[in-house]
């Protein structure tokens, strides 16, 4: 299994946090918050596509709502593989940054 890139882990964490409310608008908010910069929907969706292709997330279409001009939402959810990768990434990150405060300062 490939290591996650930083942005990929940000996405996966955002989806995980949002639980069953993870769709375009909320994901964009979450990711942008973590990243500190507003990302475009183009970027969001091209990453979501990529994550879905790699099998980290699944898509589920929701009900259409009026405020969306009658369009359905797509809800994203982590797959077990996605969760597994995220855990591995967390361990890896922990290992990387373990003694960082002492050295970096």
């Amino acid at each position: 299994m490939e290591d996650l890139s930083v942005l990929e882990s940000i996405f996966l964490m955002a989806i995980l946090r949002l639980k069953d409310k993870a769709y375009g608008v909320t994901i964009r908010e979450q990711v942008s918050k973590t990243k500190g910069r507003l990302l475009s929907y183009g970027t969001i969706y091209s990453y979501l596509d990529q994550l879905a292709r790699k099998g980290y997330v699944t898509k589920k279409t929701g009900q259409p709502t009026a405020e969306r001009g009658g369009r359905r939402k797509i809800f994203y959810k982590l797959t077990p593989a996605g969760l597994q990768s995220l855990k591995l990434a967390y361990q890896l990150q922990g290992a990387i940054w373990k003694d960082a405060p002492a050295i970096l300062d």
Partner: peptide, 9 residues
């Protein structure tokens, strides 16, 4: 559709 929906929201 989802993309456009998000945008419209």
């Amino acid at each position: 559709f989802s993309f456009l929906g998000d945008m419209e929201e």
